[in-house]
Nucleic acid binder design. Structure first.
Length: 293
DNA sequence: CACTTGACCTGTCCGC
DNA sequence: TGCGGACAGGTCAAGT
């Protein structure tokens, strides 16, 4: 589920909601919610204050003043939703979701020591693919995933030249598989792969070696465009995704191909978007402007 | 090494 | 209405 824009939206929300607050209690019932963590996670969490919430690729890092960090991956269906009655009481537009938490998808509950309202942060994850690892803050950069993950696509350093040199390491792959590869660049998932390839008029099954540099340059631009636009819209809610306040994202209302099968291509009103399979993933494209070469 | 496929889980939707 | 199978936004291990 959550790709870079969704994780970034959660990060922004959590920053304003939990930084500076102290964790009073933690409760979890699914052992895999804390893989590869100290046996007694409580010892490094209870009484610790949140100092920052950071993001790298699709990974969120909740830094604590105990010198440990809650490193979290939401995978397909994870949510981190903060419920503080002082902010979201009865009548708040989100109270329908807020009021039914915790629910049966809730894996971990963090309780904060904050005046009398007892605010909580729920880690919900229907499919149980997500996890939270409690890691000494200084060791976070050394986890295997961070050692091999590619560059952040929205930084100044991520130029078209950098993108092309990295994506060409997967010369024999389909372009869709290549940009989904987190070691090529960080943060792209199925939604923004389809959206950016439509923007660059590239068929997702095209081999990287067959794509002219000019088109790869265009794709680099489109990747940054769709990621920025989606952050502006608060991410995409296709099914489960909500932000830290339990709100849905609205990028899907602007999607040109993702989940738009059967609807007209924005460039060709008489051609319909189709859904097929590329790189073992559901793939949406316009059969007229994205030709396989 | 490059590349593809199956596994990890639960829930939902579609066809019979 | 019930049941089986396919499918869902991510990543890793194991296979070719």
């Amino acid at each position: 589920m959550p790709e870079l824009p969704e994780v970034e939206t959660v990060r922004t929300g959590l920053t304003s909601l939990i930084v500076g607050k102290t964790i009073k209690a933690v409760d979890f019932d699914w052992p895999k919610s804390f893989p590869n963590s100290p046996t007694d996670v409580n010892a490094f969490i209870i009484g610790a204050k949140v100092t920052a919430v950071k993001r790298r690729a699709k990974v969120l890092m909740i830094e604590l003043d105990s010198n440990y960090t809650l490193v979290t991956h939401l995978k397909m269906t994870g949510q981190l939703v903060y419920v503080g009655k002082e902010r979201f009481g009865a009548g708040h537009p989100n109270d329908s979701l807020i009021n039914r938490l915790p629910d049966k998808s809730t894996r971990v509950t963090f309780e904060f020591d904050d005046d009398s309202e007892n605010p909580k942060l729920y880690f919900n994850d229907q499919r149980k693919f997500g996890w939270i690892r409690l890691i000494p803050t200084l060791e976070v950069p050394n986890i295997d995933f961070f050692k091999k993950v590619g560059p952040e696509p929205l930084t100044d350093e991520f130029t078209a030249k950098v993108f092309i040199s990295r994506v060409e390491r997967r010369a024999n792959s389909t372009i869709k598989a290549a940009i989904l590869d987190q070691t090529v660049l960080a943060g792209i998932g199925n939604i923004y792969a389809d959206e950016s390839l439509w923007g660059a008029k590239i068929h997702p099954a095209t081999r990287v070696r067959d794509i002219p540099k000019l088109k790869l340059t265009k794709l680099h631009h489109e990747i940054r465009y769709v990621l920025n636009l989606s952050i502006e819209k608060g991410g995409s809610t296709d099914r489960n995704y909500v932000n830290a306040e339990g709100k849905r994202g609205s990028y899907i209302d602007f999607a040109r191909v993702f989940r738009q099968e059967g609807k007209p291509c924005p460039r060709h009103p008489d051609t319909l978007i189709i859904k097929t399979k590329v790189a073992s993933r559901g793939t949406h494209l316009c059969p007229r402007c994205q030709i396989l070469t």
